[in-house]
Design a protein around this nucleic acid. Structure first.
Length: 387
RNA sequence: GCGUAGGUGGCAGAGUGGUCAAAUGCACCUGACUGUAAAUCAGGCGCCCUAUGGGCUACGAAGGUUCAAAUCCUUCCCUACGCA
């Protein structure tokens, strides 16, 4: 199902499959736009909730829009805040991530509920029929988001591609809850679309498919969202690591073929290969930059922890043959030194490499599809890459 | 030489008769991170074992008191500050 394509936006063309660089607060953490560009990035994704809280969408609008404000001349996207329904809600303070690969007991319905009320952090989110009350993670202020509100903010932010307001559910939720949340997400999708049309403008709007790990819900969602007049689609929500791929396949079999599909928040190499193979065109993920700042670095042979003792005297580059700025100029020993010294440049160099690594891995997939040898490319990559 | 305060795990620094292999921080070792609550978080950190338990060695050194000492006593060594 893999395919190569192009998406034309007001600020340039995106050649897909493409990795979308995450710049939540209107900045790719630790990197300048020049470094992001040099890493091969085509498009940057910022976040509605974060930019609404600070500096405020009106300020971004006055600045001339997200791209101008952050000095990124290429295409931009904004997420709707739907992920924060999860990260500041069900997941808040509980160590739950959107992809469950270990701690399988989290997938049991009861895992979402705390037995010890005193230990539990209170959720910063309250969901109702029409929207979500967020408590600012910065200062506790309450803000109410509806689909209309999210779209309005995103129109102010002015990204080329924006997302419908959805509810990203926790993998710990029961099928009953997934059903309920899915109905909400569908209702909100329609409202997002209506409000988007009403506001007009040149931005593209992507609807988001949910449905957790359940085949019937996923396919239903793909059919419902796919039938609406969106410019493209996001595939969101939670998965167990093993069945993420099948869930994506269920969805992509149903979604209209001619519109782009964005797998939200996914970015591990194996997941990206599977997603491309299953017909996804776009992906965004914090992993290159977050891992980079935290000292984990991608190499052709797998991830390494640059802070580990073995790298203190390793004067070779991170990845032999890598053409990124970091590898062309610095050794592992130096980067290890920067991390140990808590120098800011540490996160910058590691993020620059990780971003280059993931972006070029996906670019390689695109080329392989065009050359008709995707299978060989995937096999040869995974042969060396230790998961 | 006299006076005062001290000498505790790699470092800083709690503890001042049993609940102490010794708080806490740093350093060190390892791990986690998937639409960013995150330059974050978690675990480990004397040695050994027939390991959710047991043994050994340790709080400057050597003696001693006590059922029991990092904690009390004696002597010695060393450090900081003050006075000669």
């Amino acid at each position: 199902m893999g395919r190569a394509g192009t998406i034309k936006t007001q600020h340039g063309v995106i050649e897909t499959p493409a990795f979308v660089t995450v710049g939540t607060q209107g900045t790719v953490k630790a990197l300048t736009p020049e470094i992001v560009k040099d890493a091969g990035a085509q498009v940057v994704l910022a976040n509605t909730y974060h930019l609404f809280l600070q500096p405020g969408d009106e300020i971004v609008k006055k600045a001339g829009g997200l791209g101008k404000f952050m000095n990124w001349s290429g295409p931009t996207m904004t997420d709707s805040g739907g992920f924060q329904v999860f990260s500041l809600g069900a997941a808040y303070g509980k160590g739950i991530s959107k992809v469950v690969s270990k701690n399988k007991e989290l997938l049991l319905p009861e895992a979402g509920y705390d037995t010890d009320e005193k230990e539990a952090k209170p959720r910063l989110v309250h969901i109702d029929h029409d929207g979500v009350m967020f408590r600012s993670h910065i200062n506790g202020d309450a803000h109410y988001f509806t689909p209309e509100k999210s779209i309005e903010i995103q129109h102010n932010l002015g990204a080329d591609i924006i997302f419908a307001f959805d509810e990203c559910t926790s993998p710990t939720e029961s099928i009953h809850y997934q059903r309920e949340a899915l109905d909400r997400t569908h209702r909100w999708a329609k409202k997002s679309l209506i409000h988007h049309k009403k506001l007009g403008g040149e931005q593209a709007l992507f609807g988001i498919v949910q449905g957790g790990r359940h085949e019937n819900l996923r396919k239903e969602s793909a059919a419902v969202i796919g039938a609406m007049d969106f410019d493209g689609f996001g595939i969101g929500g939670s998965f167990a690591k093993e069945d993420m791929n099948t869930a994506v396949q269920w969805v992509n079999e149903v979604l209209p073929e001619e519109k782009p599909r964005h797998l939200l928040g996914i970015g591990e190499p194996l997941d990206l290969f599977n997603a491309v193979e299953s017909g996804c065109d776009l992906f965004d993920c914090v992993i290159p930059t977050r891992l980079g700042r935290n000292g984990t670095i991608f190499t052709k042979r797998g991830k390494i922890h640059i802070g580990n003792a073995e790298y203190v005297t390793d004067f070779s580059p991170i990845d032999e043959g890598c053409e990124c700025y970091t590898c062309k100029n610095y050794t592992k020993a130096y980067i290890a030194h920067l991390f140990r010294g808590k120098e800011m440049l540490a996160g910058t160099l590691a993020s620059a490499h990780n971003l280059y690594f993931i972006i070029h891995m996906v670019k390689g997939m695109r080329q392989a599809i065009l050359d008709g040898n995707f299978e060989e490319y995937k096999e040869s990559f995974l042969k060396h890459y230790r998961i």
